[in-house]
Design a binder for these strands. Sequence first.
DNA 1: TTGACAAGAAACCTTTTGGTTTCCTATAAT
DNA 2: ATTATAGGAAACCAAAAGGTTTCTTGTCAA
Lengths: 105, 105
Amino acid sequence: MFQAIADPTRRSLLQLLVDQELPVNVISGHYPMSRTAVSKHLRILAEAGLVKERKVGRETRYRLDAEPLRELKRWLAYYERFWENKLGALKRLVEEDEDENGGSS
Amino acid sequence: MFQAIADPTRRSLLQLLVDQELPVNVISGHYPMSRTAVSKHLRILAEAGLVKERKVGRETRYRLDAEPLRELKRWLAYYERFWENKLGALKRLVEEDEDENGGSS
DNA sequence: TTGACAAGAAACCTTTTGGTTTCCTATAAT
DNA sequence: ATTATAGGAAACCAAAAGGTTTCTTGTCAA
């Protein structure tokens, strides 16, 4: 999953498929690369579960499935406290500084 | 940044450096690869801003800087509603089903 | 039923990635 | 001063990633 979202084209695809189900043809129209290339990106996204495919007649339509991003959120949540700590530390520093100067901002 | 966290070794490095500042030597001791390889991973993390380096005598110590993950959080936040929608849709379905059966719970 | 069209499969190419080994430089320790 | 240690730099390599073109297959339209 981390790998899947590492590529900017693929992130862009997720974005595009957020609220619409589209066939490969239409999707690839949005990109400066071949249909086949886009198709391969879609496959990678599908393997990561980030996109669902549905066959409709002779076309394959894709839509977003954000579910797997839940895992990313859990991963992130772990680190959240560290950037919050940092802000906390910075804030304390600024306050000390203000005290020293009888500071105004 | 997305690229930086795509590699499992690098994610592991972040984890390791969460609450300690360590020199390359010690860090690379945790991995089955050469010191140089670890060093390169650290450089990539540093370029993404995810890790800060500090020279102390003849060693270079690294520590986590979670700040750039903020961006990831913003990116994720956008998609959060889509997996929540999914849950919402599921919930509605279950409720409909319960209604049909005169459901309890 | 014949032709057009959508899209995956296969083969191929180039660049990037993750790793190695070998060398070099700066700082310590004796 | 000399030797040992920490760690980056350079050159190199194999495998994976991102792309291309060509070929097939399955479905729709005439």
